[in-house]
Amino acid sequence: MAYSDKVLDHYNHPRNVGALDKKDPNVGTGMVGAPECGDVMKLQIKVNPDTGVIEDAKFKTFGCGSAIASSSLATEWLKGKSVDQALAIKNTDIVTELALPPVKIHCSVLAEDAIKAAIDDYKTKSSATAQVGASA
């Protein structure tokens, strides 16, 4: 199967590979997929608590080239967006941008799931800290 130039570019030069401190209350971590399914994505965001803007995003992915490209692209798109804007990213946007063939659409779905999971985690954590703050 031939890969699109954009998939190849992300595969060869993945953006924002790495890890953020899981324990930081401003960091949200999402991990989706399973090794036995052949893909696992870990996506992290760091949100500025004052502005609600995603200042940093990192990923690591075990999966095919399209899965790597989908998560790499997701981190690029996340940076500078507000949490609400980030929630609006759809897997179909990723499919279009990377020209993914039908058999690789699940990679984009996984990336969307990873974004949502990271935001969920961030929201859970920040509401917990807010409560702690209120009761103190």
Partner: peptide
């Protein structure tokens, strides 16, 4: 492996 969350 640098890219792999499982390796990490």
């Amino acid at each position: 492996r640098e890219l792999s969350p499982l390796w990490e």
